[in-house]
Simulated assay, not measured.
Amino acid sequence: MGIAVNGIEVSDLAIEQELPHHQDAANPLKQAVHEVVLRQVLLQEADRLGITGETDDARVEALFEREVKVPEVDEAACRRYYQSQIERFSSGALVEARHILFQVTPTVQLDLVRSTAELILAELQANPDRFDELARQYSNCPSGAVGGNLGQLARGQCVPEFEQLLFRMAPGELAGRLLETRFGLHIVQAMRRIEGEALPFEAVQAQISDELQRQSWQRALHQYLHILVGQADIEGVELEGADSPLVQ
């Protein structure tokens, strides 16, 4: 493929061997090429620094351990994160909700579905008492048979975009816009809300510290890879240092 790193050619065989690991990527071949090239950059840097290991993976890990330094997360940083994300560290929060689902399928025109959904939403904004009736008539969800009632939902029980909207709503509030998820378009109403109890900081401090440490590591690793890639003479492909599963 005419790809080289600092004058050393990257073989087609290496890319072919890497390709099966990236079949879920949007562009498997591109991802495989980037992975092989980035690994070559790292192994050459390990050679330059005299870093050895039983396998290439061991040498890369040793390189990271030596060159990527991340300060320990202190208690003050953990407490700030805890206060800013207090809802995440609460237990037992529940929201009773109902919805009307307008399912989108390959055989249905999205514009037509959206127009219908917007008309129903406008009707509910003017006449909220019709929710039960209209859910039974229009919803493509089994909950339509009970007026769209989904019961009490806790965090993690529905898709993220539905959860994010629902847990921001006040009791009785009808969302003023359609919510789009992989299931289709939703009209959403929050009914009763049961507030959760915040877990004490001490109970989640270790979890927060691990999460912040991991975020710091990923930032430092991205920066290190960008520097290495910027210094390398790479021919035949444009490569960004962070575009690799190595830094996920």
Score class of each variant (00 low, 15 high):
F64A: 08
R192P: 02
V108H: 12
R177W: 12
T181G: 05
F162Q: 00
F131W: 02
E133C: 10
V10R: 04
R182D: 09
F183H: 13
L94T: 12
Q31M: 11
I15V: 14
E161W: 10
E118M: 07
L121N: 00
A76C: 03
R182N: 10
G151C: 09
H226R: 15
A154C: 03
R59D: 06
G184E: 05
L221S: 06
T105W: 02
P160A: 12
P106M: 00
I208Y: 04
V104N: 09
F183A: 15
A62C: 03
C78W: 05
H186C: 02
S216P: 00
Q231M: 07
L29F: 04
Q23L: 12
I8L: 12
L112M: 10
P200S: 09
E35I: 00
P142F: 02
G241I: 08
Q213A: 14
V159E: 13
I3K: 02
L228D: 06
R98A: 03
Q103R: 15
A14L: 08
L43W: 03
R130Y: 09
L153E: 00
V36R: 05
G196W: 02
A14C: 09
T105Y: 03
D129E: 15
Q207K: 13
G172V: 10
G147P: 04
S209Y: 09
G53A: 04
L19T: 08
A232M: 03
Q152N: 13
R98F: 00
F162P: 02
P142K: 10
I51P: 03
V108I: 14
Q207C: 03
A154E: 07
L179N: 01
A175H: 13
E65I: 11
R48P: 04
S244M: 05
Q17L: 13
L134R: 08
A46K: 00
N127G: 02
D57T: 14
T181A: 04
V95H: 01
G50R: 04
F183E: 09
M191E: 11
Y224V: 06
